[in-house]
Write a protein that binds this DNA or RNA. Sequence first.
DNA 1: AGAAACGTAATA
DNA 2: TATTACGTTTCT
Length: 589
Amino acid sequence: MVESVEVMSGSKALGGARRRRTRCRRCQACMRSECGECNFCKDMKKFGGPGRMKQSCLLRQCTAPVLPHTAVCFACGEAGKEDTVESEEEKFSLSLMECTICNEIIHPSCLKMGKAEGIINDEIPNCWECPKCHKEGKTSKDGDGLGKRRLDNGEVGRWKLTDDPPPSKKKPPSAEETRQDGQKRKKEKELSQESGPKKKMKGAREKHLKKQKQKPNSSDSAETNGPNSSSGGQGSGGVGSATQAPSSTSNQDQRSHHREKLERFKRMCQLLERTRDSSSSSSSSSSSESDSDSDSDSDSASPGGASEPSSPATAYNSREREREKEREKERERERNRRLAELGFSASDDSEGERTGNEQEQEVTSEETQQQQQRSRKSENTPRGRRSAAVTEIEDEDAAGGGEKNRKPGLLTPPSPSALSSSQHQPSIGHAHSEGVSKRSNGQEVSRNGRTRMEKENAKSNSGGTNANANHRHQSNKTGRAGKTRSGTKQTPTQTTGSGTANGGNGGVLLSNPASRIAAQLTFISPPKAVQMERHLVRPPPACPEPHCLLLDSGASHVLPRDVWLRVFQHLNQKQLCVCMRVCRTWSRW
DNA sequence: AGAAACGTAATA
DNA sequence: TATTACGTTTCT
Ligand SMILES: [Zn+2]
Ligand SMILES: [Zn+2]
Ligand SMILES: [Zn+2]
Ligand SMILES: [Zn+2]
């Protein structure tokens, strides 16, 4: 049952429809043509492949997937009406928002509870964690406990781009020839045996029964709702049903799925960033894989808070928004470029598309770099969410302030994500040094997902296309610019230690990177796509860069910032990337 | 875990 | 109806 999560809920609730997101058609990725070289392209019939994968070109992964036009509000049954109003707040209230946890699509204005409690994912249009879910405490993570993972790092090993050769190559589907008799999964069956209808059954429901996970959840209930009344209902029906059950059971599942989705996105971003870098040094020893981490969790949440009334307090800031958009665009461009570099040919050959815009940008000034870093960071990281409430009007407090503060903090993910890969592992324990807060909040943010790309990219790199990909790339961009990559995520917290920990060695810096981070990001805005308009944006906390490196012990490292900076100047990009992961301070510097 | 394959939603 | 491709399922 569960599985069908979408289905289920859909069916029950909405009419059955699954709401799969579709490409925005406006982002750069959507506008470009197929590369013809990635695995998916090769699989396409148009490129002579078998067509079994049915996936879009890696270079065409939409950066801002939108809800289908047919999507309607779970409560009132109507479509998004953001176009009918001018202010941001109204737009938000009238737009359809899809919850990544329960998957409901609803107008914030149709919720009875305050919309302020929703956490908007600004990476994906019309995507948030609805107030209901939040109230229930499900934060994204799931609580399920069950299962799946936490966001952690995703990929564990792999990616060593430079150093290692890929394990096995991928197999390029070359289609016909490739397959000889050997493979036919389904097809064979059908053909041989049954014959019947191949696809489409609408009922999709048959399938399922899969696993049942269930969580004991508690709640969920209630949701639905509504305000609606009036009209509508429509379709969705049943919604009314009121009852919703979807909740319980399916929610979790849904949640998980969604989570994965988002996660994938995140990973993709990471890959992009890292692609190339890393490695560097060392490798070597160590290894222990590990990972692990953390989690934290707990979240806690918010119990109660809020309540009903809504107040949108959302503060939107248009100026910021605009800026974000710009950044976003840039980001996108970079992304594409990077992808291309990864191996996909885009840059090199074929295709002629991308005109100049996309490729040029290199910035080198320090400042710029920093900024970019930030942005990038956000990309990889789970960034995306912000609480709608930012400001929250509701003051309640009650529970305390803690809560309030918390929300905004949501962003912080515990995730370890990132780095991970093989080489880095810190040995550090963490302590906090900077400001820190690690909080565990459990939220992971993992949601964003775009997924496939990442993976695929990887693949490609490793194998296929790539043979050269790894190395080749022109030195220029990559190499220097530094900008390019680096990414990585941020460093949130504390972990300063690295240097320290080991004692000093000069080499240290490079060699041991740190581990992850966990923590807090400041959020930055992400940029995303063209279409997202609503969201509130909140200003990043700005804190000044520290002038010295705080050690875990609380003392400052003997080397002051400027000295470190000089050291950094002698490092190459990869090395710098590694350093950036060591601790937040280094990253900022 | 990752990759491949599939069912079928969304669109054209 | 045809095509693209999302999200899940199944296989490795
Ligand atoms: Zn392609
Ligand atoms: Zn797009
Ligand atoms: Zn509505
Ligand atoms: Zn929800």
